[in-house]
Amino acid sequence: MLVGPKRLYGLIGHPVAQSLSPVIHESVYRKVGVEAVYLLWDVEGREVHFVVEGLRNLANGFNVTIPHKERVRAHCDSESSEVSILGAVNTVKVEGAKLHCFNTDVYGVERCLRGLASDGFTMLVLGAGGAAKAAVLAAQHLGASTVIISNRTRSRAVQLAGIAEALGLRARVVAWPPPREAIEEADVLFNATPLGMEGVGGAPPVDTDAISPKHVVFDAIYKPLETPLIRAARERNARTVDGLCMLVWQALEADRIWLGIDPSEKLYQAARKAALEALQRAVSRRARSTS
């Protein structure tokens, strides 16, 4: 068991009030015997620079979420290969007032797809932001051959295709929404858009009639856990991966970086259970408030 003085970790982003990160990380701390707290810091705009510099001397580490993943990179004293490739930071380890920066989203995607995607697979990526970039790098790690990218803003899709090609993948950009033939060609479909998220809603971002049992459908959204895309994929007997899988595994990788723990399946199940219970409590509170 790891023991020691109480440590300080947390999450920088905007907004962060509804984040599940404290529940996930603190469930891990209890399991491995670490005395630590995990806080939320809601930080807007350029204030992030002052907060990061303050945490340099106060925290043991912190996570970064939207919209600050690229801004924080300017403060890094060292960075992982994933950060160098993607230009985005989501985990910072503080040692001797030095900020060592990582991107654990890649590990989160990779761990969730492990055993589901065959060597040489094709991934259709919906979106071109941070989660989409992480998915492309994870696909390369898992032995993909091709990525197809569809995004509302074509220029951002072209930029992501450039990253994919630099990784040795075949890449091409298709229209938004993606044409049926692109869906049928893909083995893995990864949704990195907010379509289907609570507060955003909307129909699935693809023609779900093109989904078949050969597909693995991965939706990075975890609120709700069953998005319209996940529901449609299940109805068509496709294999599915929800966004909570990615959220928990990337958190466990951050804890490995901070604490040296093994991100095991046992820890994953415990953290996921804690997160699911928190989601259910939130649903119950909303139901009571509207009754």
Rank of each mutant, 00 (worst) to 15 (best):
residue 281 R to N: 12
residue 97 A to E: 15
residue 82 E to L: 02
residue 99 L to D: 06
residue 207 D to L: 00
residue 136 V to Y: 09
residue 143 G to V: 05
residue 149 I to W: 06
residue 176 W to F: 15
residue 192 A to M: 07
residue 28 V to E: 03
residue 249 W to F: 13
residue 156 R to A: 04
residue 202 G to V: 00
residue 219 D to I: 00
residue 68 H to C: 06
residue 60 N to R: 11
residue 207 D to K: 01
residue 45 G to W: 01
residue 55 L to G: 04
residue 75 H to I: 00
residue 260 G to F: 07
residue 226 E to F: 02
residue 258 W to M: 09
residue 74 A to Y: 09
residue 139 A to P: 03
residue 233 A to V: 00
residue 88 A to I: 01
residue 231 R to K: 14
residue 197 M to I: 00
residue 118 S to A: 15
residue 68 H to A: 07
residue 93 K to W: 01
residue 228 P to N: 09
residue 229 L to T: 01
residue 36 A to K: 04
residue 29 Y to C: 04
residue 271 A to Y: 12
residue 35 E to T: 04
residue 230 I to D: 07
residue 79 E to R: 14
residue 163 I to S: 09
residue 24 I to V: 12
residue 251 A to F: 02
residue 252 L to F: 07
residue 56 R to Y: 09
residue 10 G to Y: 05
residue 131 A to I: 02
residue 102 F to C: 01
residue 48 V to G: 08
residue 119 D to A: 13
residue 36 A to I: 08
residue 94 V to R: 10
residue 188 V to L: 13
residue 279 L to D: 11
residue 225 L to N: 03
residue 189 L to K: 03
residue 158 V to I: 15
residue 161 A to T: 03
residue 96 G to P: 10
residue 194 P to W: 03
residue 209 D to E: 14
residue 76 C to I: 03
residue 160 L to T: 02
residue 237 N to T: 04
residue 71 R to K: 15
residue 144 A to Y: 05
residue 24 I to W: 07
residue 62 F to K: 05
residue 113 L to E: 09
residue 209 D to Y: 05
residue 142 L to D: 11
residue 102 F to P: 04
residue 97 A to R: 15
residue 6 K to Q: 13
residue 163 I to R: 07
residue 91 T to N: 11
residue 147 V to Q: 12
residue 32 V to I: 15
residue 156 R to V: 00
residue 285 R to T: 11
residue 187 D to T: 01
residue 125 V to P: 07
residue 183 I to H: 07
residue 37 V to S: 10
residue 6 K to S: 14
residue 16 V to R: 08
residue 174 V to D: 11
